[in-house]
C-alpha cells in the first residue's frame, strides 16, 4: 500500500516538471500533502490518538489546506501571470526529473541498512534534488517558495525513512517554525510584488555593490 503512495508522489513530481501554470503548482502541493498523509497512515503500526492528530494536522491541515490556501492568496494578491516560462525548456525538465527518480531509486536500492525504511528514501531524495532544480529553473520568487516546499516535503519523507521519532514537542516546534517561515516569506513576497512591481528574480539586483 505504501508503494502506491510513493508512486503517486513520483508522478506529482513529474507533473511539477511538466506544468507551467502557477495555479497548478499550488494544487500539486496540496495533492502532495494528501499523499504524505497516506504514506504515514499506511506505515503506522498502531494508532495512538495524539500521534494521529498530530500527523493529521501536519499533513492534511498544514501541508494540503493552510499552506496552499495561503499561497493562493499570495498569488492573487500579486496578480501573478498564469504561465511562467522556466529558464530550461519543459522537455528537458521532464527528462531531468525522470533521471533523478531513476537515480534515487537505484541509490536507495544500494542502501544496506536494516533500520532505514528505504522505500521512503526513493522519492524523498528525488524530491529534495528536484526542489533545488525547481528553484534554479524558475525565475519568479513565488515558484522559489514552491520549490522550498517541495524540498520540505522531501525532508518530511527522509524523516519517515530514517524512522527516528523525535519527541512530539520538538516535532511541533519544527512544524511551527516551518509554517511561520512560509508565512513570513509570503508576506515578504507580497511586499516585493508591491515595491518592485514584479516577481522576477532578476529584478532583485539592488544589493550589488
Amino acid at each position: 500500500m505504501n508503494f502506491l503512495f510513493i508512486i503517486i508522489y513520483a508522478i506529482t513530481l513529474i507533473y511539477f516538471a511538466y506544468s507551467e501554470r502557477v495555479k497548478k503548482f499550488v494544487w500539486l502541493l496540496s495533492v502532495q500533502g494528501f499523499v504524505l498523509f497516506g504514506m504515514v497512515f499506511s506505515s503506522l503500526k498502531e494508532i495512538e490518538i495524539f500521534d494521529f492528530i498530530f500527523i493529521l494536522t501536519e499533513t492534511i491541515l498544514v501541508k494540503s489546506i493552510i499552506v496552499p490556501w495561503f499561497l493562493n492568496r499570495v498569488r492573487k494578491h500579486n496578480g501573478l501571470k498564469r504561465i511562467h516560462e522556466p529558464s530550461i525548456p519543459v522537455f528537458y525538465s521532464v527528462i531531468i526529473v525522470i533521471l533523478t527518480l531513476i537515480l534515487s531509486f537505484v541509490l536507495s536500492n544500494n542502501i544496506l541498512n536494516s533500520q532505514m525504511h528505504t522505500q521512503f528514501f526513493t522519492v524523498a531524495f528525488a524530491s529534495v534534488i528536484f526542489g533545488f532544480y525547481f528553484i534554479i529553473n524558475h525565475k519568479n520568487i513565488f515558484s522559489h517558495l514552491v520549490g522550498y516546499l517541495i524540498i520540505e516535503n522531501g525532508i518530511f519523507m527522509i524523516s519517515l525513512a530514517v524512522g527516528n521519532t523525535m519527541p512530539l514537542l520538538v516535532n511541533l516546534a519544527v512544524l511551527l517554525d516551518i509554517v511561520l517561515g512560509i508565512l513570513v516569506l509570503g508576506v515578504f513576497l507580497n511586499r516585493v510584488g508591491n515595491t518592485f512591481q514584479s516577481d522576477e528574480i532578476n529584478q532583485l539586483t539592488e544589493l550589488k555593490d
Binding site: 528553484i135 520568487i141 522559489h144 517558495l145 522550498y148 524540498i151 520540505e152 525532508i155 517561515g181 513570513v184 516569506l185 515578504f188 513576497l189 511586499r191 516585493v192 515595491t195 518592485f196 532583485l204 539592488e206 544589493l207
Partner: peptide, 19 residues
C-alpha cells in the same frame, strides 16, 4: 527596497540552508 530584497534573500536562503 534594498532592505526588502536583503530580507527576502536572507530568509529564503537561510531557510533552504537550514533545511
Amino acid at each position: 527596497k534594498v532592505a526588502l530584497e536583503a530580507a527576502w534573500k536572507y530568509l529564503f536562503v537561510s531557510s533552504i540552508g537550514i533545511a
